[in-house]
């Protein structure tokens, strides 16, 4: 196998939080706590998890939109965490992001043409205004809009169309890598399918490498090559998508998959109903962070933090009881 485009090792992002009073002890939120994975060129890796799993912070830490506390992020052989501001800016051209909220992520005072051309100008792509305008037109058509939309403003577009504009903006600087942070979560089902099809086409045509952050398990299954299931800042299980959905091994993955409603009446099988809710990341349980909700936890689960162990080709699980 060739060298991965993106390689993350033991990434940690901790935030200090103030206590209830100025005198109480400082606490630390371990939002991301030892994340690691490799991503091959042209592949889509999804980070899935519930609220508080750290998936969004993980994505932003990889791009250094949030500064990680420690660890390593290697992008095409370069350690991103070792770069200074200018070097990072130059590298960022190759790493773009698509946001969840297509209403908040586009500047309402800029025309669509300017929104898309801005990054090109910044990174010196295109020769002169006319060339950039042609490129913008081609990008708009690429994402299913038209040249005429260039002079319009974001408020004139629906949610799905704005998400297409956001995708065109990301593509404008010809990136190798895209972080897609819940890009379809705010869209209606019929529009969500259009955007998923578009992402699929772009990956096939442009060979894009993508980290997709999501919570909808059927969307993730549809789109991903690899899936990492996160809980309280850690990866519980990582595998090829087909493998993970066919043979979920970690008890949390099992519970998550069985909890997801499927659009087939009567299909609800044996459900692993989890008790309680995700504990606060300020005070995660000792040992395995999932043990307080785990149906098969034993006394030894409190003692050691389980490592991700390989149980099959590319399939790793952090559980001392399984695998």
């Amino acid at each position: 196998m060739s060298a991965p485009l993106l390689s993350v090792r033991d990434l940690r992002t901790h935030f200090p939080v103030r206590g209830a009073t100025p005198f109480s002890r400082k606490k630390i939120v371990r939002a991301v706590d030892g994340l690691g994975f490799d991503l091959q060129r042209g592949q889509i890796l999804s980070l899935v998890g519930e609220s508080g799993s750290g998936k969004t912070t993980a994505g932003r830490s990889i791009l250094r939109l949030i500064e990680p506390t420690s660890g390593q992020v290697e992008f095409d052989g370069t350690d991103l965490l070792a770069l200074n501001a200018a070097e990072l800016r130059a590298t960022r051209r190759r790493m773009q992001i698509i946001f969840q909220d297509p209403f908040a992520s586009l500047n309402p005072r800029m025309s669509v043409g300017r929104i898309i051309a801005e990054g090109m100008k910044l990174h010196g792509i295109g020769e002169g205004t006319q060339d950039r305008r042609d490129r913008v037109a081609a990008l708009l058509e690429r994402v299913g809009l038209s040249r005429e939309h260039m002079t319009r403003y974001p408020h004139e577009f629906s949610g799905g169309q704005r998400q297409r504009i956001g995708i065109a903006r990301a593509l404008a600087v010809e990136p190798d890598f895209i972080l897609a942070d819940e890009p379809v979560s705010a869209l209606d089902v019929s529009i969500q399918a259009q955007v998923l099809n578009l992402l699929q086409d772009l990956r096939a045509d442009l060979g894009l490498t993508m980290v997709f952050i999501g919570h909808d398990l059927s969307v993730v299954e549809y789109l991903s090559d690899r899936v990492a299931v996160m809980y309280l800042g850690r990866i519980m299980e990582i595998a090829d998508a087909r493998d993970l959905y066919a043979r979920p091994t970690h008890p949390y993955t099992e519970a998550l998959l069985s909890a997801a409603p499927v659009p087939v009446p009567g299909a609800r099988g044996q459900r692993v109903l989890l008790k309680g809710e995700t504990p606060s990341p300020v005070a995660p349980p000792s040992g395995c962070v999932f043990r307080t909700r785990c149906p098969i936890a034993g006394p030894d689960c409190a003692a050691t933090v389980p490592e991700l162990r390989e149980i099959g080709p590319g399939h790793r699980v952090a559980c001392i009881k399984r695998g």
Binding site: V189, S190, Q192, A193, L196, S218, V219, E221, Y222, A241, R242, Y245, V262, P263, V264, A267
Partner: peptide, 8 residues
């Protein structure tokens, strides 16, 4: 429009 389980 809704991805089905097993659909990849």
């Amino acid at each position: 429009s809704t991805p089905r389980p097993g659909a990849s």
